[in-house]
Design a protein around this nucleic acid. Sequence first.
DNA 1: CGAATATATGTCAGAACAGACATATAGTCA
DNA 2: TGACTATATGTCTGTTCTGACATATATTCG
Lengths: 106, 106
Amino acid sequence: MKKDKKVALEKAGWRVGSVRDFLGLSKAEEALVELKLTLSRSLRERRARRRLSQHQLAKLLGSSQSRVAKMEAGDPTVTIDLLVRSLLAMGTTQRELAQAIAAKSR
Amino acid sequence: MKKDKKVALEKAGWRVGSVRDFLGLSKAEEALVELKLTLSRSLRERRARRRLSQHQLAKLLGSSQSRVAKMEAGDPTVTIDLLVRSLLAMGTTQRELAQAIAAKSR
DNA sequence: CGAATATATGTCAGAACAGACATATAGTCA
DNA sequence: TGACTATATGTCTGTTCTGACATATATTCG
């Protein structure tokens, strides 16, 4: 894992490799966090492309500005579910979603 | 989406074929259900490929046989988060995940 | 500077989900 | 048939997530 990424993860409050005693799980957790970051960035990009404020997007999603901020910040309390639902609600297709995930967004 | 709507949808048999908006699902909800089905299938395929029983996989994931069954059945109580975490725990890479999502089935 | 706007952060009650367990169903084989 | 194995389904309870709210921190503009 790259240093800046690890810093970003720690900043977001993640404790990598601490939970279960299953061998591959810490690696899986890492992958999960990466995926979340990918989706976070994708969400922010799409919002920016539409020139929506967090407040406007929140209204569109039936959520709140603070939660949108947390989605984009990769906050640990935000699930992939919420991120994906938000992306889909913005009109992202499954294929586009796949592309975003594949690209890992940089 | 409301849970009772999802339940009603399942009762109507949406798992077998194309998901349509005959119950008034929005495009985003439709896409979400499709995505979950895609991930469900992918999970089942990967488990089958490894010749693991649901019980074995459950133990590997730190979960239970019943939850694995629900994951594969696309049960409404199963989130995308759980599906993705399971796939990643099985060693699926982000790129492979993207491919699975892009393919939609198969 | 102060007002306006956008974004970030912390907290909390209620809602949704998780694993676990019991149990049902289905297939296999002796 | 009955024992065995795999999978499906229903439900419970503790845990986690969510939207909402308050509030802090930019940033812009007059």
